[in-house]
Structure formats: C-alpha cells, structure tokens
Nucleic acid binder design. Structure first.
Lengths: 341, 341
DNA sequence: ATGAAAGCGCTAACAC
DNA sequence: GTGTTAGCGCTTTCAT
C-alpha cells in the first residue's frame, strides 16, 4: 500500500507584483510604479491595482526592492545597553524621526564590549544599511575600516571627537566633569569621592573631575570604582564603604550616573545622614527622578532627546547630499543645581 | 569648451562573491559554499577564498541571500516603549538569545497605539522577518490577518490568552491584581486607592483589584487614573491629590507600576507620612529600586528575563519544527512583600 | 569537489 | 502611461 501524500506543507506562497499585475491586467512594472509613484499611473489602472492589492493582502518584498535599488531603508543602531535609560531615550528620539522618514532600525546591544561591537557591525553591514549609528567615539580599527569601507554615513553619539569616522553628536565628557568639579569647589566642598562605573566615558569623567578638584583644593580625591553598570544598589554600597573608611565633613560624591547618586541618597537617608549637610551628591544624566526625588539631585543634564534628534538630522542631511555637512555636533551639557549639593 | 567630468561619484562598488571567486580562481558558487558550508570545499580552495575575503574586506550581502533563500534571519520586535525598563529588559533577554542563534532584530516602538502597531507590522512584514514578536494580546483584526497571512511564527508577550495569534508568553494580569487585593485585605488594609496609567493591561489590573477588594471589604475603591505613562512625578501628584481628598487610616495604594509607587513613597516622605503606618503602597513590576529603596517596596514581581527567554525559545521551537509547540506560556508572577505594605 | 543555469521579487533604463 | 529588458548578489538544483 503506497503511502499517501504526507508532509504537504502549506507552503505559504507570497503574493508578488506579478500576481497583482495579472489580476489587474497590467504588467509587473506598472504595479511597481503604482506603489512607488502613483502619479505615473493612470487613475483607472491605479484603482484596479489597489483593488488587487486589497483582495490579496499583498505585502511588498522590501528585500527584493533593496537588492534592486541598493537602498535598504535600514539604519543599524548599536548601543551599549537598552535597559539604561540614557541610551534608550536617545534611541527613541532617533528612531522616531528616522521612522518618519521611512527608515527602520536594526538594533544591537554591545554591552560596552568592543568585540561584540565588532561582530555586530559586521553582521549589520551585511544587511546593507543606509547608515550606522554607534555609541561612543572609541572603536576598534577593524570597525573603523569596515565602516569606512561601507561608504555609508555613520554617526557616533554620546561623545565628541575631532576625528569621527564620519560625524558625531555628543558632548565633551571631560568638560562636563570639570564643570562639576568647579561647581563643587565653588560650593565650598573640601573633599571629594568619585563613584564610577566601568565604562570608558565614565572613567574619563572621573579622571577629569579628580584632576580639576585636586588642582583647586590640593586635596586627594577618593575613588570608588565598579566594573559593573551603575545601579542603585551599588550606589548604596559605595556610600557604605565611604562611611566605613571615615566620612569627612564637607564631602561631595561625584557619581558617574544618577543611578549611583540615587543609591547614595537612599543609603544616606537610611543612616540618618543629612544631604547636603553631612554629605553632598552630584549625579550624572538628569533622569526623571533627579528632579522629583527628595532631596532633589544636583546633576549634569544631557538633553538626550536633542541628542537623538540631532543624530537623525545629521544622517538625513547626509542622505540628501547636503554640501558641507557638519561633522561635529556638540549638544553640550548643563550642571543643574538642586538640593543634594 | 566642453565641461570636464564632474560629479564623478566614488560609487562604492561592493565586493561580491563573484569578485572573490575571480581572485581565488573558483566560481561564485564555490565561494558561497565556502562561506556557508566550509566542509563541502577542499581545504586548499577554502584557504584561497578566505585569503581573498580578507584582502578585499568582503561583506556578504544578506539581502541577496535572504531573497534567494526565503530566510531573512530577521525578527521583527514591537514594544510599546523602549524607555520603560519592563519592556526593554525583556527585549534584551530576548534579543540576546536570538542573536546567539544568528537572528537580528528590527525594532519599532508602538507607544501603546494600535494604529502605530498596524503600520509597524505592515512595514516590518515587508522585510520578510522569520518571526514577529508583539507586546500584548490585543491587536487589531488587520494585524491578526496580516500576521496569519504571513505564515510565520508570532509570539505575543507580557500577557496571555487562550486565543493567541500563534503563541504567547506572559502572565494573567487579572490574577496578579487579585493576588494583590487578597494580600491587601489579609494584611488588614481597610481602604484602597488605585493609581493607574493609561495602558490597557494596567486598566485590567485596576478593575480586577477593585472588584476583589470591594468584594472582600465592602468598601469602595478610589481611582486615580492617568492617561500618560507612569512616572515618579505623577506618582507624587497622585498621593497629593489623595491626601487633599482626605486620606483615611489603613489605606493601601495599588499602583500600576513601580514608577508610580516610587513617587508615592517620595511624596509620603516629603510630607512626613510614615509608610506603611500612615499609608501603604503596592507597586507593580519589581524594578531594581523596589528592593533597594527605603522603605523597600512591596510589589508584584514579573521575571522579565525568563519571559524574554521563554519567548525566544518558543520561536526557536517553531523554527526547528518541533511537533506540538506549546501555545500558551504562563510565566506567572509573585507578590513580594517588603516594607511598604 | 566544483560548476552551470535558473531564479528569488523587485527597480532602473530605455523603448514605444 | 505602459511594457520590455536587464540586472541586483545571492541560494538551489542538477550536472559533471
């Protein structure tokens, strides 16, 4: 007894432009025109095509389109972490605008790891994105070469440099830290502790803060360094350790992120320490709670929405072939004084 | 005088497999094999090809590959918001695993807006993703039809239903809220206020909480409803208004997110109100600060990492053609009692 | 182990 | 306004 036909897969056959053309009684190209340049097609034809599209539930194949036109309408975006609001909020502002211009985002997290970034860049480039967004301005030479080779616009965000791969949108981390140090000195703080996460930009801020604070006060700066990403819990831990080591009067803690600062605030409150009288805190990032917590947090504000939007504009400028596109966009920073320092 | 050649664009000509083949003295197909099935090519040939790839910096064109093979290795992921850690953390867990299996993510934010979701689904489907991840289980009929039509695996997350498009991974929101209500009653709270953001799942939790609390206590539940996403600031505002309206003893606030709860905690602290004695607070989500803040926050924990990972496995199961894949994955929830209630 | 041929579904260039 | 012809850069199938 012969076996009946088994494993007859439903084999979802996709509707193509050719199918639509057949239904509408026109050729495949006309369908293509109807979809991408409707005014180049007669109204009657257009209507028949639209009807066929409706009936069949036709969905264009953007893969084929991209292959034929060498335009993928894809932007590759690489960020260190999605769960860190400073990056995700930029990404939201960025992708909002790019989406409005017909671009889609392919996303990867690099976790502050150059190797992951390298792999991710290679993989993303194979999709032939029309542009790439990277976080930070320090990248392996391989990454730089691949990107240069791809010959597409690249925007590096959250930092600036005189030698971007293509262009960058960010701010001078060292200057932000120096501003914080100046503020701390002017406000009368005599001792400082830095609380720092492991990422390279945070380290640069720490060093710039320390250099300036020491130069102005002739006082050593104590360092609390973490390799893990900043969390509230680590912030609490940091203050605990500082207290164990002996907290001096007139001490300010310069945290590499508001997350740390929040932890310091919590720990201070638990221990019945008054902020800013017993200890002062400066955060970094100006997340929502900084303004809303009690005591409110003195911090360095980065306008992440503007940053994301500027990155988008920079790419759009490049797409439109604007003659002399700006290479370095400094969106600045602002030290926001509140109650904690 | 004839014009010289101007606008000579550098026309980045991409290296192709054919180019590599020419360099290595083999045909284009052999290059294809060398890259996707190295063991089907002789060691010497393989080495020559690899060398050519190195020299030229060849990057495969995944667009062409996907078109030819009908496999894009793309997963479309739609989430309401990237800046909300509950979604971004799931996405991180999810994409981590998918990336490990060779898949890339195309991302869109829908902002809790069905229309945006509909447009996004259509756009994403045109890229011929191998699967789609959606947030929530309520989608327009158009979305359902498009997805069904695409014939690819679909996973709906952060909620469960008996009638998923394909499969879902989440938990029963109503049950979570009922558990919170039961807890509140058992803990001796006599009055309740719900603080709720505008999204549909939060509303469902609110209603379930209210129904159960009222049934158990014969007491009306007061509602504080917001249409905007939950923020600390709105949480403070909520408590202010509750107090203005007259805060009764033995009141518990059931917040639709930890964000709200944090705001309530801050406002209470500012006003010198003791938690949980003057008022109790229950959050939702168990974000990091819930455990770390003082007083720590009683909240409903959702294991977002497991959720994201389960969603990934569900898709991988489908890809591998596993016979009877599970359609409904309930990852559950857990009421975590801490200091605030 | 390697190659030739066909074709994925579209856009671009050029006819008519 | 519409159609014809060529690809885009791969994978697949079938020969050898």
């Amino acid at each position: 007894m012969p076996e009946g036909p088994k494993n007859t897969p439903k084999m979802r056959q996709h509707v193509t432009m050719t199918d639509i053309g057949r239904l509408a009684g026109v050729s495949q190209v006309t369908v293509s025109r109807a979809l991408s340049a409707p005014d180049k097609v007669s109204p009657e034809t257009l209507e028949r095509i639209k009807e066929a599209v409706r009936q069949t539930g036709y969905v264009p194949n953007a893969l084929a389109g991209a292959l034929a036109s060498s335009k993928s309408n894809l932007i590759a975006a690489l960020v260190p972490s999605l769960t860190n609001i400073v990056y995700s909020s930029m990404l939201t502002a960025f992708s909002e605008i790019m989406w409005g211009h017909g671009y889609q985002i392919t996303l990867s997290e690099t976790g502050f790891d150059p190797e992951r970034e390298e792999k991710a860049v290679a993989t993303h480039l194979s999709r032939r994105p029309d542009a790439v967004l990277l976080t930070g301005v320090h990248h392996s030479s391989t990454v730089r070469r691949m990107l240069l080779n791809a010959g597409i616009p690249v925007v590096e965000i959250w930092d600036i440099t005189d030698t971007p791969i293509d262009c960058c949108v960010g701010f001078a981390h060292a200057n932000a830290a120096i501003a914080a140090a100046e503020f701390a000195v002017e406000a009368g703080y005599k001792h400082a502790v830095t609380v720092t996460a492991g990422d390279e930009r945070a380290l640069r801020r720490r060093d710039a803060f320390e250099a300036r604070f020491t130069a102005r006060t002739q006082t050593m700066v104590q360092q609390m360094n973490f390799t893990r990403p900043a969390t509230l819990g680590l912030g609490r831990q940091a203050l605990s350790q500082v207290i164990d080591a002996g907290l001096q009067p007139k001490t300010v803690l310069f945290c590499s992120s508001d997350q740390f600062a929040q932890g310091v605030l919590v720990e201070a409150s638990v221990r019945g320490l008054a902020v800013p009288d017993d200890l002062a805190v400066i955060g970094f990032g100006d997340q929502e709670f900084a303004r809303m917590t009690a005591p409110s947090l003195t911090t360095v504000r980065i306008d992440r929405q503007t940053l994301g939007e500027t990155a988008a504009s920079a790419l759009l400028d490049r797409f439109s072939g604007k003659p002399d596109p700006v290479a370095v966009h400094d969106v600045g920073f602002k030290l926001v004084r509140r109650d904690s320092a």
